[in-house]
Simulated scan of single mutants.
Amino acid sequence: MRHTISVQVENKFGVLSRVAGLFSGRGYNIESISVGETLDPKISVMTIVTRGENQIVEQINKQLNKLIDVIKVQDLFDVDHVEREMVMIKITPTQEQKAEVLRLAEIFRGRVVDSSLKTYTIEITGDESKIEAFLELVKPMGVKEFVRSGKIAIARERSRG
């Protein structure tokens, strides 16, 4: 099963290495990892995506909590949350395909972030299925290369009332 884990850590040298080492030491792959500062520059949040049986990932979460620089661990598997990632795609359409590429970018709420005589670089932000759908539609138009960010996620607040 796929798990998205949010880990709040002290923003210190070596923390990322220790967290990644915990996964590799148990033979688990990290599908994606994103790290960034919070409102407090002394604290960062890591969003880690991995696959594994629930009880194994639960053990990993317990081990994460034992790391000295870890403040909080939250497995978002059973938590209502919002997740996004970003992709930048360099497309080399033919002259006849250029308008279609721009139309698709608009439909997917993407934007052209760079262009040349032969290429468009388009940025798309959304959930994994949106990004996969866009990539499938533009592949026949000449995807030269693309890069993806890791997933970021945040738990939803519960409504009170």
Rank of each mutant, 00 (worst) to 15 (best):
R160W: 10
I30K: 13
D40P: 04
R111D: 08
E85H: 04
A155M: 12
I131L: 14
V45S: 07
I60A: 06
I154L: 10
V112I: 15
Q55N: 11
V79D: 07
E106L: 04
M86N: 13
I89Q: 01
E100S: 08
E83R: 01
L117E: 14
Q63T: 02
K144L: 02
D127E: 15
V82L: 07
V70R: 02
E123G: 04
Q74R: 04
H81K: 09
D69Q: 07
A99R: 08
G161E: 13
D127L: 10
E132G: 07
I122Y: 04
Q95C: 02
V57E: 00
Q97G: 09
R156C: 14
V112T: 13
E96A: 15
R158F: 08
R103Q: 06
K72D: 05
V101Q: 08
K98R: 15
V112A: 06
R160T: 12
I154W: 00
A155K: 15
V45D: 04
L64E: 00
T92Q: 13
E85A: 06
I33R: 05
R156T: 14
N61F: 02
D78F: 05
D75E: 08
G142M: 11
A133E: 15
V138Q: 06
E157P: 09
K62F: 07
A99E: 13
S44F: 03
P93N: 08
A105L: 03
S44N: 07
V57D: 01
S149T: 07
E83V: 01
Y28H: 14
S149G: 03
S129L: 10
S129Y: 11
I30F: 13
V113S: 08
L117S: 11
I30S: 10
V143G: 06
G126H: 10
S159L: 12
D69Y: 03
